[in-house]
Nucleic acid binder design. Structure first.
Length: 183
DNA sequence: TGCACGATGAAC
DNA sequence: TTCATCGTGCAC
């Protein structure tokens, strides 16, 4: 299993989002290696995307999104759950891919269908905000072999306030996978 | 310095 | 449909 190179993230955000499906998210915490297979993601295309956090400009919370690609953007939502994104494209582009659901692969307890549950099950929290994915304890890797799958496109979840951007098909998931949060 | 509001999840 | 729960961002 090979860690993805920095160049994987420094590309078109939609392409990165689609290609993250089927990859393995790995987090090593307290000597325990937890692995989940990514089955659902959402693309956030930058400051012009009204559903993206970066649409309000560079702030204390969103500065990670404005940083270089291949880093984790982790934030607290609704005061009780964490959400993990992967920063994409060139520094300053402020785009990212939200990881919405994974399929348990190794050392994963509890449900993983949804961005909040995913982070809880893999022990991912705000301390990992800004963490470089080109590292040994938090990274994404391509599994040795993968079965072919079909990608489904849907509108993103919970962004009704974003006007026309709410209708864009920027959520991608693996068809018929039981771990997708909202098929 | 105060306050409205979420890229959610679970219960009713 | 309602609620738990709190950091962030912006108004004042």
């Amino acid at each position: 299993m090979e860690n993805l190179p920095r160049t994987f993230y420094d590309r078109d955000t939609i392409a990165v989002a689609r290609e993250l499906l089927g990859k393995h998210l790995v987090h090593v915490c307290d000597g325990v290696e937890r692995i989940g297979r990514i089955v659902e993601v959402e693309a956030y295309l930058g400051p012009h995307d009204l559903a993206a956090h970066s649409a309000r400009g560079r702030t204390e919370r969103t500065k990670t999104m404005f940083g270089p690609p291949g880093h984790a953007y982790v934030y607290l939502i609704y005061g009780m759950y964490h959400c993990m994104n992967v920063v994409t494209q060139a520094e300053g582009h402020a785009s990212a891919v939200l990881l919405r659901a994974v399929e348990p692969v190794q050392n994963v307890e509890g449900r993983t269908q949804g961005p909040g549950l995913l982070c809880k099950a893999l022990h991912i929290d705000k301390r990992l905000n800004g963490h470089d994915l080109f590292s040994d304890d938090l990274f994404i890797a391509a599994p040795a072999s993968t079965e072919p799958f079909t990608i489904v496109k849907r509108p993103r979840v919970g962004v009704d306030y974003a006007g026309p951007w709410a209708k864009r098909l920027l959520r991608f998931y693996i068809r018929n996978n039981p771990f997708v949060s909202r098929p």
